[in-house]
């Protein structure tokens, strides 16, 4: 056996998204006044960076689940609608039924998990393409949410619940803790249990995984359920943040942000390795772009255009053709040296 040669940094899978994020933050720190400043006010941290993470929290949560689904060659378009559903249920429980906090948190999560289960069963048992299967809930889910709230924007006051969205723990926004907690939990599931191996073997070669005894269907369903749960949690945060269930806007288009974040993070839409750290970086990249634009007084509309261009460029980097060209280029340099 030969000695392990350390992998060139730029070849490491999560290098690109993390590097891009770092570059963005550095540029911002240099060019945008006050970007890097973090101050303590009323015992909690304030600053643009904190803001980026706080606002990016829902997409980061979604990206965690979506990474697993996409790594298994699936996709979940319904996360935005599931967010709306979870938010609607929570708001309704507070405003109408005045339910205890545990119920307010638990019931929406159960609903979200059920939505994930539904998606998973459509994909595995009914054998639908994931895009179609989840499109159904995307279309219908928001309608269901609207029916739950009766078409109104349900507002509520419940400080304990609002803490989910606006509270701070040890000076750090609670959303950040949540994202960290979920990431660590799912990361641990992937790293410390065989789940990660199952997921990546299914994404890499489903036939081989089946022949090796992996329960392909069960793992896929589990992936969709987990994504549903993440969406539910994101829905709770979004609802708590604005003290209202605004069903028609809650999580609108967010599925696309989440998918983009995952793809930016280096997980291929055709399955394989699950890059969760990359996906989180991807989510932050997009939020940073948006926040920067706002801070510099450029309208959000430019952020959309820039997002589109960045997304395409990063995807281009991931295409085999471009990689081949890059490798040839770098290879030549190495030979020359």
């Amino acid at each position: 056996m030969t000695k392990q040669t350390p992998l060139a940094l730029w070849r490491r899978p999560t290098f690109w998204p993390v590097a891009l994020l770092a570059l963005l933050w550095l540029l911002n720190a240099a060019l945008t006044p006050n970007f890097a400043r973090i101050e303590v006010r009323d015992g909690r941290l304030f600053g643009s960076l904190i803001d980026v993470i706080h606002r990016g929290a829902p997409v980061m949560l979604l990206a965690v689940g979506m990474t697993l689904v996409i790594a298994m060659r699936g996709i979940d378009l319904s996360v935005g609608s599931v967010m709306a559903m979870a938010g609607a249920v929570a708001a309704q429980l507070i405003a109408v039924h005045d339910a205890p906090l545990a119920v307010v948190v638990a019931v929406p999560l159960v609903v979200a998990a059920a939505a994930g289960l539904w998606n998973g069963l459509l994909v595995t048992l009914a054998g639908m393409q994931p895009i179609v299967a989840t499109l159904i809930l995307l279309v219908a889910g928001r309608g269901v949410a609207q029916l739950i709230t009766g078409g109104q924007i349900t507002t509520f006051e419940r400080p304990a619940f609002q803490f989910l969205g606006t509270g701070a723990l040890l000076g750090v926004p609670f959303t950040l803790w949540l994202v960290a907690g979920v990431t660590l939990l799912v990361g641990a599931l992937l790293r410390l249990t065989p789940l990660g191996l199952y997921v990546e073997s299914i994404g890499g070669n489903e036939r081989a995984a089946r022949l090796a005894g992996v329960r392909v269907r069960a793992i896929k369903v589990a992936g969709y359920v987990l994504t549903g749960l993440c969406a539910g949690l994101a829905g709770l945060i979004a609802t708590a943040d604005i003290k209202a269930a605004d069903v028609s806007n809650c999580g609108l288009y967010i599925e696309l942000d989440a998918i983009l974040a995952v793809v930016l993070g280096g997980t291929s839409l055709s399955g394989g390795r699950a890059r969760m750290v990359g996906a989180l970086a991807g989510a932050l990249i997009m939020q940073t772009l948006t926040t920067t634009m706002l801070m510099r007084g450029i309208g959000q509309e430019y952020a959309l255009v820039i997002k589109a261009v960045v997304a395409l460029l990063v995807c281009l980097i991931y295409t085999p053709r471009f990689r081949g060209a890059l490798q040839r280029l770098v290879g030549r340099e190495v030979h020359a040296a």
Binding site: Y198, S201, G204, A209, L211, G272
Partner: peptide, 29 residues
């Protein structure tokens, strides 16, 4: 069973040697 078509039915090409070796064992659980 070590299948006839190694590429299509046996290996998960993107995964490491270690992961490919422990796959079935882990799956059996």
């Amino acid at each position: 069973m070590a299948p006839e078509d190694r590429q299509a039915d046996g290996l998960v090409q993107d995964l490491s040697v270690r992961e490919n070796i422990v796959l079935a064992l882990q799956a059996a659980g």
